[in-house]
Simulated assay, not measured.
Amino acid sequence: MSDGIRATVSFTAPGECPIATASHTADGRIEQVSTSTSPSESEHSVTEFIADGDIEETDRIEPVFSYGDRSVFRAHHHPPVNCPCETLGEHGCPIHRYSAEDGQLTLVFHAPDFETLQSIMDRFRERYPPVDVQRLLQPPLEGSPEERVFVNRGKLTERQLEVLTVAYEMGYFKRPKGANATEVADALGIAQSTFTEHLVAAQRKLLVDILE
C-alpha cells in the first residue's frame, strides 16, 4: 500500500463552502471540525464543527447544541459539487483537518499518489482560484514535523527558474565550482549583474519557505 501524500492547501475564494461561509460571522477561527466523506451524486453527508458566537443558520448550516459561548453546528453537503471539501469527496480523498477564518479555508488532506493529487489540484485551480499550496509531505520523511517543509517553486518567474536550473546544471553551486558567474551568465546570454539579480531574487523566494 502506498504511503500517500499529505497536502495543505488554502483558498481565499472556496466557492460555497459552508464552513468558510460560517467563519465570516464566527468569533475567531473555526478549527475543531469532524470530517466526513463528501457526497457523490447519490449520497449525502454532513460535517460538524465547533464555533464561538452566533452563526447565521442557512439551508446548509444548522445548530446542533450549545454549551457556554460555544456551539456545535452541522453543515450539509449535497450535489452539485460547489466547495473544495466536496471536490475531495469526488476523488475519495479523506480530509485530515479543516481551518476557516474570515471566509478563507485551509484544508489538510491525503491523496494516494501524485497522479491523484495533480488531478485534484487541477480541479481546485479550475473551480476555486487562487489556490495556495502551503505544504506537501510524502512519508517516510526525516526530521521533525517543523523541519519537513514544502518549497513552492511556483513563486519563481520563468526566468528565475531558468537561471537556477542552468546554474545548477553547470555546477555553479558545487565546491569547487563547476562554473563561475560569468560563465553561467554567458550561457544564458545575459550580463553577469543580471544573472546575480535573478539568482538572488530566486534564492530569497525559496528561502522564505525553508526558513519561515
Rank of each mutant, 00 (worst) to 15 (best):
T37V: 14
T37K: 12
S38P: 15
S38K: 09
S38E: 15
S38M: 15
P39V: 00
P39A: 05
P39W: 02
P39T: 05
S40K: 13
S40N: 14
E41I: 14
E41W: 15
E41Q: 12
S42G: 03
S42V: 08
S42Q: 15
S42E: 12
E43Q: 14
H44M: 12
H44L: 12
H44W: 11
H44G: 10
S45N: 14
S45L: 03
V46W: 04
T47E: 02
T47C: 15
E48F: 00
F49K: 02
F49Q: 00
F49H: 01
I50K: 14
I50T: 13
A51H: 04
A51Y: 00
A51F: 06
A51M: 05
D52T: 13
D52R: 12
D54S: 11
D54P: 02
D54A: 10
I55N: 03
I55W: 00
I55T: 01
E56W: 08
E57W: 06
T58G: 07
T58S: 13
T58M: 08
D59K: 11
D59W: 03
D59N: 11
I61L: 15
I61Q: 05
E62I: 10
P63V: 02
V64L: 07
F65A: 12
S66K: 15
Y67A: 11
Y67E: 11
Y67T: 10
G68D: 05
G68E: 08
G68W: 00
G68I: 04
D69R: 11
D69F: 01
D69I: 07
R70P: 02
S71C: 10
S71I: 08
V72I: 13
V72Q: 06
V72D: 02
V72W: 06
V72C: 09
F73Y: 15
F73I: 04
F73R: 04
R74N: 01
A75M: 04
A75Y: 00
A75D: 00
H76F: 15
H76G: 07
H77T: 03
H77E: 09
P79T: 13
P79H: 09
P80S: 07
P80K: 08
P80C: 05
V81S: 06
N82M: 04
N82Q: 14
N82V: 04
C83A: 12
C83E: 03
C83L: 10
C83D: 06
C83K: 01
C83G: 06
P84A: 06
